[in-house]
Structures are given as C-alpha cells and as structure tokens.
Design a protein around this nucleic acid. Sequence first.
DNA 1: GTCTATATTGCGATAGAC
DNA 2: GTCTATCGCAATATAGAC
Lengths: 198, 198
Amino acid sequence: MEQDSKDKLRDAATVLFADHGYGGVSIRQIADAAGMNSALISYYFGSKQGLYEAVVEKQVRIIDKLLYQDMDALDPREVIRQYADVMKQVHKASPVLLKFICRELANPSEVMGFVRQRIAPPLFAIMSKTLQRGIEQGLFRPDLEIRPTVILLVGMINFYYLSHQLQLQAIGPEKERENEDTYMKQAVEIFLQGIERR
Amino acid sequence: MEQDSKDKLRDAATVLFADHGYGGVSIRQIADAAGMNSALISYYFGSKQGLYEAVVEKQVRIIDKLLYQDMDALDPREVIRQYADVMKQVHKASPVLLKFICRELANPSEVMGFVRQRIAPPLFAIMSKTLQRGIEQGLFRPDLEIRPTVILLVGMINFYYLSHQLQLQAIGPEKERENEDTYMKQAVEIFLQGIERR
DNA sequence: GTCTATATTGCGATAGAC
DNA sequence: GTCTATCGCAATATAGAC
C-alpha cells in the first residue's frame, strides 16, 4: 500500500492547496482529508514543502503532456485554434491548475516559480513563432508587435477560466449553453479577425 | 499621531498582504514593518481580520473613484478605448490591486469576496451595455454574444498587468518602450477590428 | 509503513503598566 | 496612545513503539 498512501496524500493536498494556498492548510488537515496520519507526510515527502513541490510537479506534467506537440507545419491560424482547444483540455484535465497559477501571479514565489520557469517560456516561444510565420505569409497584419500580441492571445484564452472562478452568474444569467465552447469559438474568431491583414 | 499610526499600519499591511496573502503574514510582521507594536492592531482594527478589511476597503475605493464615470453618451468604441485608459490609471494608482484580485481568483473567500461583489458587477454592467449599443448602431458584428465578449475584453486589458507580475523578461528581451501603451493600443485595436461589422 | 506522543515554535489576542 | 508580558492555542516536525 505504500504508493497508494503517498498518492492519497498528494491528491488530498492538491485540492486543499489549490483552495486555500500553502499557508492556509495544515498538514493535519491534509492527512485527515486523505484518511492518513500527519506523520506520514514527513515520512514520504520530507516536509510540508516537499509535499507541495510534489503537487506542483504533477500539475506541470499534465501541461507538458498536452501542450507541446508539433505545430510548426500547420497554418498559423490553425495553431491558434488548436491552442484554444488544447487549453480546454488542460483545464479539463486539471481543474485546479488555474488556482495554482493565480496564486503564483499574486506571489511569484509562494513556494517556487513554476509558472515563470516551466509553463510560460515554452508557450511564449511557440506562439511568437506562429505569429511571426503568419506575418511572413501575409496572413496577419505586418505591424503586429509579437510580444504584446502573444500576451493578448494567452490572456484571452485563459481569462475565461479565471472569470469562472468568480462565480459571476449573479451579474446576469449565463445563457443556456453559453459555455466554454461558445466563448472559445468567439474569442478565437475575434482575435483572428482582429489581427488579419486587410 | 493617532491617525498617523493607523495609516502606517494599514499601509504596511497592504504591501504584505498583497505579497504573501492573509495567512502568510503575521500581525507581528506587519507591526514591525510599520515600526509599531503589534498590540496596536487590535487597538485600531479590532483584529487581524479587521485590518485586512480596512486594506481591501481602501483598494475598492480607488477603483470606484476612477472607473465609474458617465460613459453612456460616448461612441461605444470610445468607451472601450477609455476603459483601457482608465485601467492604466487604476493599476498605476494601486500597483498592488491586481495581487489582491489574483488571490481572490484563486480563493474567492480568502477573507471576503470583494472582487465578486464590489468590482466585477458594475464593470460588467457598463461593458455589456456598451457592446449592446455598438451592435444596435451597426458598428459591431450582430452575432456577438455579449457576455463572452465582455469577459474577453476585460481579460485582454487586465492580463497584460498579470503577465507583468511574472517577470517574463527572460523569455525574450522586452523591446525598448514596448510598454503598456504599446500593448493597450494594440490590444484595443485588435479587439475593435475583431468585433467590427464588415 | 503507520501510529501515538511530544518537543518546539510561532500565532492572535489581551491585560495592565505608563 | 503605546508599550511589555503573557495566555492559550495550533502549527510543523520528530522520536520511538508497534
């Protein structure tokens, strides 16, 4: 049962850290949620921080697996559409990921800078290249500034999921099935029309 | 000196809470940073939580003051341009605001849901109305879904500031003066071209 | 591998002197 | 209005039994 106990602890910790942050959760709460003893955290992970690192490590692996596929051969517009689609999968595969990212935006070293080091750079590299190709092919406006445009694209795609965490239904009924598909489709459309050469 | 001490405590707390979150800071750290005694926090604010509420209250007041002006008479495109401009001012007036918002996105009730209750609703109301007007005037694509488009706009504008907190320079040199003005100008341009009726 | 028990540290809050 | 001293509690981590 050794691996089983370790996994149970890490899985329970993932949810609790996502919801309450590193400092907002005690090892006893985590152990209780996992149905284990708190001493096992030191045993398996060395310390509370070691456990946190194990949690983050697993989140990063989910992204790596989904995000970094070959996209160089595709039409640049298709890469952008596919990015939106992959992010949908990422957030579905790991509904808590965004909470960790938010925490890190608020405090880039809550425990370690995993977004800054492991997530953002490869993503920005891919997208910069894609925009550059689109400009060279005459698809996109030649006056586009690459970096701001990448930030814009990434923000557009991900902010939808951020806004969801706010439970904003109260401000106006979310229309029937006005769901992530509606949003993504329209966001990508607006972005592509917005950067199109004309 | 009474008001002075109170202000010093709240100001020191603002920075620390922004950087480390509510649970990540002790009242003793706050008092030290303010050059005051920790007992004064209870004296002035009743409790640590009372102090946190005072900090948030002040942040909300900064936004209220800048954001909610009359915009009904303007060209809808102009409202969008002005929104980008006001957000520039907001983030300049309160560089820590975004950290509080991020924390609340990660944990909608760190201590209280001020974004959900006090910031988001009026903003969404204004922008929904503006888009609606633009569609009626034939300026914007009639097939726009209002709600997703508002989320898109708000995300676009604010994600730039979020990305700044990541200190992403390493991923490629930030070009000379490729600053917030460049970003805002281009983001608004792309958005407006993207939602334009054609 | 898992438990109990505990050592140690730091927390928020307050009583009371000045 | 500000300080010192301290109470009571909960935290992490660990020693040692099983």
